[in-house]
Computed example of a mutant assay.
Amino acid sequence: MTRTVVITGATSGIGRASALAFAARGERLVLAARSAEELAGVAAECRAAGAATLAVPTDVTGSAGVEALADAAVREFGRIDVWVHTAAVMVYGRFEEIPERVFDQVIRTDLLGAAGVARVALRRFRDAGAGTLVLVGSLLGHISAPYMSAYVASKWGLHGLVRALQQEGRDVPGVAVCLVSPGSVDTPVYQRAANHLGSSGRPPPPVTDPDRVAAAVLDCADRPRREVSVGRFTGLLRFGFTVLPGVYDALVGPLMRRLGLTGQPVAPHDGVVFAPDPAGTGVRGGWGHGVAGLLRAARDRGPE
């Protein structure tokens, strides 16, 4: 049966990769993101792949916009079977040096935006007695890293929210809530992040291709699971964070400075936290993958 799939955050990274993967299956798609221009582009790609596609410009930080998105999906296709939420923004900086307005907007987008999507989706799924909500979290919902406090707080909050939703939803067996938690992924989010640190950021290697994460999203849509981790070393990092916290905390700062920052100076800016940048979207960010990426990052960063 052809499903109707809503994807929020569809113009970039994991969201765009997921949209194209669902389109290749011929699913009916409702794509949402802030940039109408780039949304039209990804919708055209999905239609070219043979998928009936509706594009609805939406800012997930507004509840009215998310409700209007759901209404548009039902008007166009009659129902919503799967809702995939990937929208997120990021800021680099020491906690006390990040402007309050930037910190709060990252929380508003990454955590409260996800909560707003979940609220709208689950109300409709509960009424229908069926539906699958797939939320994309992060390894940073289980561990922490310096200079990314707003993103870490958001993803820890999202992980807790998902667990609570899974517990509350046990009385409706046809409704599933899934969490996909990748490590570093080759997406444009790092280039588009706000920066109040003075050094530009990058994904600490090894870096996973977004198509791998999209495959996990599709797998959850087909066979819902509570949580799926994607990426090398995620289990090891979670173990170290939990079992050896002192060792982890001693190492994470130097490793973040060497592998998670480029060392290239950058003036303070707000990235796409408050407004989209159509020129900065796409599936991939051009970061190296695997062990080769690890070696290249260490070489490019140079000595501490």
Rank of each mutant, 00 (worst) to 15 (best):
M1H: 06
T4L: 01
I7Q: 02
T11W: 02
S18C: 04
L20D: 00
L20P: 04
A21K: 06
F22P: 04
A23R: 04
R28I: 04
V30Y: 01
L31E: 00
L31I: 01
A36M: 01
E37Y: 00
R47C: 01
A64E: 15
L69V: 06
L69R: 04
R75H: 03
E76V: 00
I80M: 12
I80Y: 02
V84H: 07
A87N: 10
E97Y: 04
I98G: 11
P99S: 12
E100A: 15
E100D: 15
R108K: 14
R108A: 15
T109I: 14
G113F: 09
A114I: 10
V117R: 02
R124G: 14
R124S: 10
L133Y: 06
V136P: 02
G141Q: 11
H142W: 13
A145L: 14
M148E: 14
A153Q: 13
A153D: 12
K155V: 10
H159W: 11
H159F: 08
V162H: 11
A164R: 14
R170G: 15
P173C: 07
P173D: 08
G174D: 04
A176K: 13
A176F: 07
V177E: 08
V177A: 11
P188I: 09
P188A: 09
A193N: 08
G201C: 11
A215H: 03
A215N: 02
V217H: 06
V217A: 05
D222F: 02
V228I: 14
V228F: 01
S229D: 13
G231D: 03
T234L: 07
F239C: 12
V243H: 06
V243Q: 00
D249R: 15
L251K: 05
P254N: 07
L261F: 15
P278H: 10
V283D: 00
A298R: 13
